[in-house]
């Protein structure tokens, strides 16, 4: 078990290193000079050189790479070209904003999907609940998630005016941590959060349903029924066993899921790290983009590791080697 985790951690570090290196070279290869736009504002050559120095853009590519890796090891991603602030200072509040929609959104999406999927899978084959459940889930899954976002915006923001459709707070709202505690914030949070839930639920629902459908005819379910256990409890056994395939899908699918959340952040102008990542790339703010990609890589690698461990917890047959 310990050897297994150590080996997986080593693999993870390797993957993260590879991703960061690719990022580094990709951004250097792009023929863009981040000082260009500053030059237009009358930057002197000395000042420009000083900036390049500060940003670690002097010397050979190899020197830059070594310095870059060293900095990352100490958690230093440099300063944003655009904001002229350390990258972490730029990203930290954005990360928190993203977590506000991602964590509850994914958890609720998975939980709702699992519960509804169990109900649909346990329902009479070919019955109303089964057919409408599968139909809805398949339709939602087929719709690109920016369409879901725009539909939500059109209905609940533009037409009904129930929810604001932009950003995280009205102008003049409180700042700092206190802002998360306001009704205004929750009001803004609602639509993007719902979008994440709707986006993430169908796949969970369908996977759970097919698992339950498969399990409900197994011999062990028959024996549990024979024991005189209440229906709900019997369905729980089928659901519990169906979680295993769900978990194997859930975590590795995180990369794709995160891409979906980036889209939702953009549609709702939610000031999260995903939206900032896209902006940073278009603005050629490489330090920010690099750090954001680094974060993504770390998250995805950790998610895969977590999937393995959670699976082992849920399935007693799993042996770590």
């Amino acid at each position: 078990m310990r050897a297994y985790i150590l080996r997986r951690l080593a693999q993870s570090v390797l993957v993260v290193w590879a991703v960061t290196s690719i990022m580094f070279f990709m951004f250097r290869v792009m023929p863009a000079d981040p000082t260009a736009m500053l030059l237009e504002r009358g930057l002197t050559e000395e000042a420009r050189q000083a900036l390049l120095q500060e940003w670690g853009l002097t010397g050979t590519l190899w020197d830059q790479y070594v310095a870059y890796l060293g900095n990352i090891l100490t958690g230093d991603f440099g300063s944003s070209f655009l904001y002229r602030k350390p990258v972490w200072e730029v990203l930290t509040p954005l990360i928190i904003n993203t977590l506000w929609i991602a964590v509850p959104g994914l958890l609720l999406g998975a939980a709702l999907g699992a519960v509804i999927g169990t109900a649909v899978g346990w329902a009479e084959r070919g019955g109303k609940l089964e057919r409408s459940g599968i139909f809805l889930a398949t339709v939602i899954r087929g719709v690109p998630n920016f369409v879901i976002g725009i539909a939500l915006l059109t209905i609940f923001s533009s037409t009904l005016s129930w929810f604001p459709g932009f950003g995280m707070g009205d102008p003049g709202a409180t700042t700092g941590f206190a802002r998360y505690m306001t009704l205004d914030f929750l009001h803004h949070l609602a639509l993007p959060l719902i979008a994440v839930i709707i986006y993430f639920m169908p796949e969970n629902l369908l996977l759970m349903r097919s698992g339950v459908v498969e399990n409900r005819t197994e011999d062990y379910i028959e024996l549990i029924r024979a024991k005189g256990v209440p229906q709900r409890r019997v369905a729980w056994h089928a659901a519990r066993n169906s979680m295993l395939p769900l978990i194997t899908w859930l975590f590795p699918a995180l990369a794709e899921t995160i891409a979906g959340i980036v889209v939702i952040e953009i549609v709702f102008s939610w000031p999260g790290v995903g939206r900032e990542l896209v902006l940073a790339v278009t603005r050629q703010d490489y330090p920010v983009a690099q750090a954001a990609f680094f974060l993504l890589a770390v998250m995805i690698v950790l998610a895969n590791l977590a999937a393995d461990l959670v699976y082992g917890k849920l399935d007693p047959r799993v042996v770590y080697k």
Binding site: D219, Y220, A226, R240, L244, P316
Partner: peptide
Amino acid sequence: LITQSAMNSLDPV
């Protein structure tokens, strides 16, 4: 009921 106990007559988890 005593079933024929192939591998899958008990809940594996």
